[in-house]
């Protein structure tokens, strides 16, 4: 079975507010409404990669080209972060 592609949900936008990146819910998102979620560098990178449809493996590949991974934790971190974003419907599988 082909690996699914994901894309960012239009219910959220990423904004650079002051010195940090913040995810802002702008759609009907239940509990997350009226909140602003601070994104660290990893989450910001992942969000930006999923702005166009991509698989998690493709995102990992881009990350390997851009960042060093001396401890070999990059793939695990990206997979875990992506799972969380899917769980919270912040990124969605492309039909």
């Amino acid at each position: 079975m082909a690996e699914p592609k994901y894309v960012t949900s239009s219910d959220f936008i990423l904004r650079e507010i002051g010195e940090e990146y913040v995810l802002v819910p702008v759609g009907d998102v239940g509990d997350l409404e009226n909140s602003m979620i601070s994104f660290n560098e990893t989450y910001t990178f992942i969000w930006k990669q999923f702005e166009t449809p991509a698989t998690v493996s493709e995102v990992i590949e881009v990350a390997r080209q851009e960042y060093e991974d001396p401890e070999g934790l990059m793939e695990r971190h990206i997979r875990e972060a992506s799972e969380e974003l899917v769980k919270r419907s912040i990124i969605k599988a492309v039909e």
Partner: peptide, 12 residues
């Protein structure tokens, strides 16, 4: 920084 965050939060 606080002013930027508060203003943005109020805006949304």
């Amino acid at each position: 920084e606080a002013s930027v965050k508060t203003t943005a939060s109020d805006f949304f």
